[in-house]
Nucleic acid binder design. Structure first.
Length: 799
DNA sequence: AATAACGTTCAG
DNA sequence: CTGAACGTTATT
């Protein structure tokens, strides 16, 4: 795969570069009437179609063009031909809005929500665009009130109008408006779902897994119907069988659920007859005012628990991809681990619930795997059966099952027991990095232990990194796998199959941030009252929960689901499996820990491009192929970058990572490194030499913390470079970790005297560093700054 | 199926 | 009117 990826890159470049060989004659299309005709035709179907435009307010809209993406390179301003006419990938709007000129098809007027205060009224007066027929109307102008509209909260002013909803139309049109995200992006990162062929797929069982993934997709509201009609699509590649295993694993819970006593509980939930609307798509029951948006908020019962929310979450799965295998593993693990079981138990009721419904549904409709499933048919059915309504939203079981695993949290827990991965530890890993790393490792590893076994590079490096868990540990002597010891001994980890790069399908879903509307402040109770505890109080409770537990809470009810999605609870997302990429996007974490995962280059690239606010990125133990995504993506705000133990990351790769874009166009690409704002760089275990250090001092002027532990090629000369006169590093550096760098001697300590801000020097396990040398350093520095030896060869400034 | 290209729509 | 870029169509 590495090859393929690289190949792609090359192509990419070449493309952008020159005028391009006439692969395609540009002239011809230009005037072709045909195209025009077609256009008009398509439009005709649903009336005047309005093109959505960027909101100009989201993070993406506020960014400046990266100048490096496929589309930027095409722009004339960046020296390209300007034929593609697409927005910079980094600037693709997260919430495209209707144009200002949009008006109601019925009354011809613009949105009037500003004229009223009441939420419900606002809804009735705002313009809503149907994701199926594309008509734009004021809900108030519709006469068909007998049926319900289903709001798609993922996109502003988007719903499935009552007419379409009632008619049971499924949006054949691929996705709702504003789908640009999913289409037209190179690299097949985002592709559209092809509904059509999926249809025939077989029923479900196998699909389950898939379904899960897809189903959840954010877009659900929008296209769900289509999908379901069409039928679930699964990824082509995956062999059904795979799923089956999954199912079994995963599925287990569900089936039982139904029989389970717990199930009754579920019923309790169900009891509320109220139609709950899902936030995303709410379906209004006839009982209520169909169009009332407010219903959503007013949901009296939370019974649905989570349907919607689930959807949301679930949707997250975006990038499914090759990982199925992973999933399986994950699942297994979870299952295996005792903890997991417990967790499941806890969850079971919840699961059950959803499972139950889903089941029903599933049976009724073939599960469509598509991103969205719910509403369309569901509604119809609901009409038929009263009960149905609750269930409608949910997808077939699979989803529910799957969702679980994916959730990051679980992974952590589950895995912990089993991990086998070992990471190299420093002898004592007190060091910050290390300790962290260790922790993570476990977690993450647990999740997926499959790292690629070896790549060429890795072979080359073998001494250092233990690439695979199974294999012998990394070469460093002093290390012991700390965790491993405690934990299970090595496990037989599946061998890595690094996931083949199948096509990633993250694209299937439009990934958008959570609804803008604030979540309710109090929990609505069945009796119509509100719970006494306010949201903030709950939040303080939630803040003490692990992500895993949060996920459990998110299944309790719609309100909890929204509350638990609060950014504050997800400041840091760890142990993420590739399956959860879209979930990550939804939460817009400032810190992302993908350490020791087998995330692919495409996935990482996809993520980075959608996390404009990412500050911390931890990629230790990932492959260089994946990490190289940083070379082509721009991540200006990144402050912390952890690429420890990245296989294949050596001087040449460091250059790729740090160097400014080489193909600066006339425009004004700045020739500063994409990683110029990095302050905390973790390079432990890399075979880098002074060459890389020179790049670092040149391109990371704000570097404050540098971890070079386990870098056998680092020498006193390296330190000399870092602290040389004229470098900004000399003054910005506060923490340096050179532990287990056997070529470093006491001489380095003398170099550190030049660092004006140095506070922490870790030279533990440096065979050539002596106690005397440290004492001398302390003595000489005492004139201006007081240092102390926290432990052997570990110097710290006394504050 | 993927992706390049294009006509047309939008905002200013 | 112009630059940007959406959503569709043409090509590969």
């Amino acid at each position: 795969m590495a090859m393929s990826l690289s190949a792609e890159d090359e192509d990419y470049d070449s493309d952008s570069e020159q005028p391009r060989p006439p692969n395609r004659p540009k002239p011809k299309m230009a005037a072709s009437p045909a195209s025009a005709v077609k256009l008009s035709a398509s439009r005709g179907t649903s009336g005047a179609r309005r093109r959505r435009t960027r909101c100009r307010k989201c993070e993406a809209c506020l960014r400046t063009e990266c100048g490096e993406c496929h589309f930027c390179k095409d722009m004339k301003k960046f020296g390209g031909p300007g034929r593609m006419k697409q927005s910079c990938i980094m600037r693709q709007c997260i919430a495209p809005v209707l144009p200002h000129t949009a008006v109601c098809l019925i009354c011809g007027e613009a949105g009037k929500e500003d004229t009223v205060e009441d939420e419900e009224e606002k809804f009735n007066l705002m313009l809503m665009e149907c994701s199926i027929c594309n008509e734009i109307v004021h809900p108030n102008c519709l006469k068909v009130k007998d049926s319900n509209g289903v709001v798609n909260e993922e996109l502003p002013n988007c719903w499935e109008c009552p007419k379409c909803n009632h008619a049971g139309k499924t949006g054949k049109q691929k996705r709702g408006p504003g789908f640009k995200y999913a289409s037209n992006l190179p690299g097949s990162l985002l592709k559209e779902p092809r509904l059509s062929r999926d249809l025939k797929e077989e029923p479900d069982p196998p699909m389950v897994a898939t379904a899960t993934v897809t189903a959840l997709t954010a877009t659900s509201a929008v296209k769900r119907k289509a999908e379901r009609d069409e039928c679930p699509k699964r990824k082509e590649e995956e062999p059904p069988k795979k799923r089956s295993p999954l199912l079994s694993l995963d599925g287990t819970p569900r089936p039982r659920l139904e029989d389970n006593p717990l199930r009754k509980k579920r019923k309790l939930f169900d009891t509320n007859e109220e139609p709950v609307m899902v936030k995303k798509k709410k379906k209004l029951s006839k009982l209520e005012d169909p169009l009332t948006p407010k219903l959503l908020r007013q949901i009296k019962t939370e019974n649905d628990h989570g349907d919607e929310e689930d959807d949301q979450d679930d949707d997250e799965e975006g990038p499914e991809e090759d990982d199925e295998q992973e999933e399986e593993e994950t699942v297994k693990k979870e299952r295996d681990s005792g903890a997991e079981d417990k967790a499941k138990v806890l969850l079971s009721p919840l699961l059950r619930t959803s499972a139950g419904r889903e089941t029903d549904q599933a049976s009724s409709n073939s599960p469509r795997a598509g991103p969205s499933s719910e509403s369309g048919d569901a509604q119809e059915k609901s009409a038929a059966q009263p009960k149905a309504r609750h269930q409608r939203r949910r997808l077939p079981n699979k989803e529910s099952g799957k969702e679980f695993n994916p959730e990051a949290p679980n992974t952590e827990d589950c895995l912990s027991n089993q991990n086998h991965t070992r990471k190299p530890l420093k002898p004592e890993d007190s060091t910050t990095n290390q300790s962290r790393r260790a922790l993570k490792l476990e977690e993450s590893m647990a999740n997926h232990n499959r790292r690629p076994l070896k790549t060429e590079d890795s072979l080359a490096n073998q001494n250092h990194r233990g690439r695979e868990l199974n294999e012998t540990p990394r070469g460093y002597p002093p290390l012991s796998w700390n965790r491993s010891a405690q934990i299970t001994p090595v496990c037989p980890r599946p061998l890595p199959c690094r996931s083949p790069p199948k096509c990633i399908q993250m694209e299937r879903h439009v990934i958008r941030p959570p609804p803008i509307s604030p979540p309710p402040d109090r929990l609505p109770l069945n009796d119509g009252e509100e719970h006494v505890m306010r949201r903030e109080v709950w939040m303080s409770v939630f803040s003490h929960l692990t992500h895993r537990d949060l996920c459990v809470c998110m299944r309790v009810c719609r309100t909890w689901n929204r509350w638990c999605c609060d950014k504050r609870l997800w400041k840091q997302i760890k142990s993420i499996t590739p399956l959860m990429l879209s979930g990550i996007i939804r939460r817009q974490p400032a810190a992302l820990d993908l350490s020791w995962t087998n995330i692919s280059k495409k996935q990482l690239s996809w993520l980075i491009n959608r996390l404009p606010g990412l500050r911390v990125l931890l990629l230790s133990g990932c492959s260089w192929v994946a990490v190289s995504a940083l070379c082509t993506s721009s991540c200006p705000p990144l402050r912390t970058l952890d690429v420890q133990w990245v296989e294949g990351l050596k001087d040449a790769q460091m250059r790729d990572l740090l160097s400014p874009p080489t193909d600066n166009r006339p425009g004004q690409l700045d020739n500063r490194s994409k990683l110029r704002n990095v302050e905390d760089l973790r390079l432990a275990g890399l075979d880098i030499t002074d060459t890389s250090l020179r790049l670092i001092i040149r391109y990371m002027p704000s570097l404050s913390k540098l971890d070079l532990s386990y870098c056998n090629h680092v020498t006193d000369q390296s330190v000399n470079i870092l602290t040389a006169a004229g470098t900004t590093t000399r003054d910005s550096l506060t923490d340096i970790n050179l532990s287990v760098c056997n070529r470093v001697t006491d001489l380095s300590l003398t170099y550190f005297k030049r660092c004006g801000s140095i506070c922490h020097i870790d030279l533990r396990f440096c065979k050539q560093v002596t106690k005397e040398g440290c004492d001398q350093f302390i003595a000489e520095m005492s004139v201006s700054v007081q240092f102390e030896l926290i432990e052997e060869k570990l110097l710290q400034k006394i504050s």
